[in-house]
Amino acid sequence: MMRRILTPLANPQLIALVGVLLVNWLLFPNFFRITWQDGRLFGSLIDVLNRGAPVAILAIGMVGVIATKGVDLSVGAVMAMAGAVAATMVVAGYPAPVAVAAALAVGLACGLWNGFLVAVLDIQPIVATLVLMVAGRGIAQLITEGFIVTFTDPVLIYIGTGSFLGVPMAAVIAIALMLLVTLLVRKTAIGLFIEAVGVNRAAASLAGIRSRMLLILVYGLSGLCAAVAGIIIAGDIRGADANNAGLWLELDAILAVVIGGTSLLGGRFSVPLAVVGALIIQAMNTGILVSGFPPEFNLIVKAALIFFVLVIQSPLASRIVPVRATAREAHK
């Protein structure tokens, strides 16, 4: 029983996260200091949660897609679209709940469109989602007419910058989504079917799994998550920046999923570990910012750290651990 609780904690992703946080602490001794300020928690660790939330939310959607041997390149552009829709609607006078619902609907529709291309038309995911990656940002720019659409709607701003019990709203939403999606895939058979389709779609079809429906579902979820992330970052800067919102974040989301141990070849996946992957990336980013490195080194430092994390969880490294374990068992 004890082992069943502890085993998931002893995985390479959590070790890597703790490692990166410790490095941050060495570079910046106040890294773990959290204070209470204006009714909210305040500190670098909270920043990691808050700033990591958009990518974490993208990763929650992306992990299912990647587990089916797919990829969703459009999430960054969908973020921009969702933010643009929400912002222009509140500026036009619609109530915030309507604007948020419309933005979520746009994200869902984008995801379902991707799913349709992949599942029904059988277009390769990387190509199918590239369509929206390119077109989506253009559509977002059309919606905002090239402006940064700023707004003062308190609800939208609360989603981006508010806090709940002292925790930033973005982090609360990310955690809630993580729990929700984890329950959705693990308490139903959906998770197993996603893995089955990712491992062997032909066999899944012969075993009676409706793989088309499933693919449309996972891409739809990815689009929905992207919309949530898009609303959050628009709320954060009180404006929809169609040019920059979510730019390149699809790559961070893919990286988070991969760091979370899901293979790009599909199959086994874990939603919580993808979120941990996103936190690892953000912990690096925040660490670089507080460390005082010259910005010219940002990308190099980040690349080196990611390389390190990927090495930790490479097949070679994981082989070393079981070898020891079997050796110990042999002694028993």
Partner: peptide
């Protein structure tokens, strides 16, 4: 530090500066 000319990165970097 670089804020990539964008609002959200400007905000994120400023947050880190305030902490440190």
């Amino acid at each position: 530090q670089t804020g990539d000319f964008t609002r959200s990165k400007g905000k994120e970097v400023m947050e880190a500066f305030l902490k440190s």
